[in-house]
Nucleic acid binder design. Structure first.
Lengths: 270, 270
DNA sequence: TCAAAAGTGTTAGCTGTACACCCATGG
DNA sequence: CCATGGGTGTACAGCTAACACTTTTGA
């Protein structure tokens, strides 16, 4: 049972899928300093857009939540546990597939990493690309990527976001580099330090680390604040709460509850 | 050909629908002053949740964009042109329908109005409810409503949002009342005036209007800034751009292009 | 001429930004 | 002892919040 022709396909009820923009901090392509965002793409093995690079994703099948589907799309390309996963937007223009197949795609963005810990291995069907040198993508995935990058730039100031990119322990200088890399703008180091420390979100580990040959820097860690029970209040999932906050103004920062991500996730097999 | 039993339905591919939270500013229920948000709900005529109130919405069928589907859900309950329409969130937990029918719902929020112009007529299947006295809703629609209200509260400071609630021409006092009503907090009138005027977004009409028996107030109007051609730049729809901005911090306000809403909308028949 | 709402001025305190400066370390 | 990055002090500009004040109107 093959597909019908284009106009027949247009009459089908739309299919739902998820697409995930997975972002990790990796080395710059010229100097090796970490300061560029990388994302894995998969090569399509079917029409339409056979052979093109596309975002990891999959169809939504019964009994699974959207987050689960996104999580699985992610684990099919990376064996890392996502450090952050949030819904971006639902794309549903019937013209978007440009092949007549009506399709609604719910886009997610995820952060993986820990600066050192990401494995940028290339396989036949999965390859990591620098944000700055993306190939042509299938469907409207390029727009989804831009959407995700914009969101990240706007949200990197939230500790829960930045911390998922950089990893558990870090110096203020490292954190500063991440901010400059992600936002693409220069930030005064002195003021950055004070702002971060004043936020009360950072906690000294007591350790020091020397990166170059100079004075060693204090190692910090994000202080995970205790669970507010906000979800019990309104029945919202953490992910939904984050999206709510994304819509918030800057004023109320990070009074969100942080709980272990993906409470339903199975133990990872790696 | 009826439905199978619950476990059979669970195996179906999920259905996609849209739900719309339509908000308008209406009179307070005690004093008649405009200061309460109202929304239309429809009574369900089918299982599940037969007889319960639910958000206007519908199934997504082929060839229609999500926005079109949302627009039509809106026009089925209100013959007003939506002044604002924006995607909220995609809800997709398979447990959400509590009846075994897998369902993904893409929620939109819309503003209609112009203070005087909304017709709060009740019909058999459609009734307007005050935000403060909502009945029990079908599905997880209560959460969607809360989601929309939170979004509105966070975004009312954006002129394009507030203006769609209040109507074309207004005094600063009226605008001030809207802000206080929506945010639920007291705002110093003097500072509010200055902030609004300093924003450069307001424009005198030259008219004055007297609401009580006192000194008449200047009538203002929002200055619609010219079209940035941002959509041509990135291929984003206006609606997608707004959602992007929602994720933005307060700093960059309203450099968004404003174009006539719903360019594909047919002339209204009223 | 008085009450009530429209509209203006003034100040204290907070925050962001710029930039000068001191400190610790290995070579 | 010096170059380098880590880390601190300070001063100014601009914004916000609070509230006292003046103006305009109809009754």
């Amino acid at each position: 049972m093959g597909f019908g022709n284009v106009s027949e396909r247009r009459m089908q009820p739309p299919q739902i899928g998820v697409s995930v923009v997975v972002l990790a901090l990796g080395p710059d392509e010229h100097d090796g300093t970490p300061g560029t965002l990388w994302m894995p793409l998969v090569k399509r093995v079917r029409e339409p857009f056979l052979g093109r690079w596309a975002l990891p994703g999959g169809s939504l099948i019964s009994g699974k939540s959207l987050e689960q589907a996104a999580y699985e799309a992610l684990s099919s390309t990376t064996d890392l546990r996502p450090q952050y996963l949030e819904q971006l937007y639902a794309f549903g223009d019937p013209k978007r597939s440009s092949s007549g197949l009506p399709m609604v795609s719910i886009a997610y963005w995820a952060l993986v990493g820990g600066v050192e810990s990401v494995d940028f291995t290339t396989t036949t069907n999965v390859q990591w690309f620098s944000e700055k040198h993306l190939p042509e993508l299938a469907f409207d995935h390029r727009r989804i990527v831009d959407f995700a990058l914009t969101r990240l730039r706007h949200n990197v100031a939230y500790p829960r976001v930045a911390s998922r990119l950089i990893g558990e322990r870090f110096t203020l200088a490292q954190l500063h580099r991440v901010f400059e890399a992600v936002t693409g703008s220069e930030i005064d180091v002195a003021n950055f330090r004070r702002k971060m420390l004043a936020s009360g979100q950072l906690e000294e580990t007591g350790d020091k680390i020397r990166e170059g040959r100079q004075r060693p820097a204090m190692v910090y860690r994000y202080r995970m604040q205790e669970h507010h029970d906000a979800d019990a209040l309104h029945g919202w999932t953490q992910e939904e709460l984050r999206t709510l906050e994304d819509a918030a103004e800057a004023s109320e920062d990070a009074n969100a509850a942080i709980v272990p991500l993906m409470p339903w996730a199975n133990p990872i097999t790696r």
